[in-house]
Design a binder for these strands. Structure first.
Lengths: 234, 234
DNA sequence: ACCTGAACACCGTTCAAGT
DNA sequence: ACCTGAACACCGTTCAAGT
């Protein structure tokens, strides 16, 4: 535990995990996440690729560490409204606003859950709001997860859409599929086909979030019905 | 070979897109998506990497094509209940059941929307159910998107969790973070910390889906309020 | 304990040429 | 039109050795 006095063993470190994360963050901010490679990072830091492996397990862990660092510095706690339901919405929206500003989260999201220390306060507020609205602790966990699924999905799908729009105006595959939609067989789809891109470009995260939270908090099925549905799942 | 018969233009193709997709599907099924490389695929097919680029634009498109093919063959249309709200739930659950069975969708989901021809019928049914419950066409598109965000997010987060569980029982980062949760500051989180893994391993997709659909169809804000919220977004 | 060099076993894609 | 060979510009990670 007392490492400043006892430098007796081995050679002193030249690079630190903090330095690795900081440099990695700079590369990612400046050039995007797929320009971050262990070799490139080592060069930037003035070391060799293998030196990095003494401080992080592998590239995947580095990415998770990077997002934790980002969350710790950018996840600002919002003012909490009194109404517990509104608290849930406001806190979820705060998570999403911060993470959506960081276009490479998708890479990490698909590698691991975001569950940094900095995020725990947000989870706490969401769960507390849900419990204050009448959910049990277990129900609150499941409801929180549903909110997280919706939030993560929105960010990922939106990021994919933006990437698609970014690299070239080549007529997207989806547009061709829609154009082929038969109005007789698929009237609803055909009816909005021409406006699909425009409609799905709108940011409706908040509307959907409110609907989800309302639904999660609406008078649920009776306890017996819930128990039955739980049984049928296992 | 004998090319003197039908030499209208150029040389006859040795390989086809269909053959590429079929072989790629075999590799992915047998060994997982990250064993699918253009070089490996070419070898398997008895050709060279560059021959593939005459039939698909790049690896990303190949993956999208592969998922479309999977969807076309596995997305079976469910019986439609009479109740339009239940129709929405049943159809969304059918999409999710099929896609969740295919662990590599995440790679495609983050590259592009799934929007194959085979999926259009499902989109149609969901939109039709939503409209039958009173939504306008535009609202139905947004509601469909919310359902898709939730569904995609659930599949991606679940897949990440399974991958994490699969490769080694190393104590996940998340578990350590939870163990450190201060019961005084974060009572709700600390209260379920020990059961978090167990609770989040439960499949609650359907419960969350029902909550979301209920919320989306519940008496929405008045038309004027909706118009105001639309204005404030743009 | 920490770092290095060399090597392993690969990638996706471009280019110019052949048939 | 379709395919090939060679090359470009890389990867993440392991291993054995050095300090």
């Amino acid at each position: 535990m007392s490492q400043q006095s006892a430098q007796r063993k081995g050679r002193p470190p030249r690079i630190s995990r903090a330095e690795i994360i900081e440099t990695a963050g700079r590369i990612v901010d400046a050039e995007g996440v797929d320009r971050l490679t262990m070799r490139r990072l080592a060069k930037e830091i003035g070391s060799t690729p293998m030196a990095l492996y003494h401080h992080v397990r592998d590239k995947e862990q580095l990415l998770v560490l990077l997002l934790d660092d980002y969350a710790a510095r950018n996840l600002h706690r919002p003012d909490l409204p009194d109404d517990p339901r509104e608290r849930v919405v406001v806190v979820a929206a705060a998570i999403r606003r911060t993470l959506a500003a960081c276009p490479w989260i998708v890479e990490v999201l698909t590698a691991d859950d975001l569950m940094s220390e900095a995020a725990l306060w947000f989870v706490e507020q969401i769960m507390d709001g849900l419990v204050a609205c009448g959910l049990t602790a277990d129900e609150a966990v499941h409801a929180y997860r549903a909110i997280w699924y919706y939030t993560a999905g929105e960010m990922i799908v939106r990021a994919a859409g933006e990437r698609r729009r970014a690299d070239g105006d080549r007529p997207t595959y989806r547009e061709r599929v829609f154009a082929d939609a038969d109005a007789a067989e698929l009237p609803r789809v055909a009816g909005v086909a021409s406006r699909w891109a425009e409609l799905t470009a709108e940011d409706t995260y908040l509307d959907g979030l409110r609907a989800l939270v309302d639904g999660l908090l609406a008078a649920p099925a009776s306890p017996t019905a819930r128990a039955a549905s739980r049984r049928s799942r296992s």
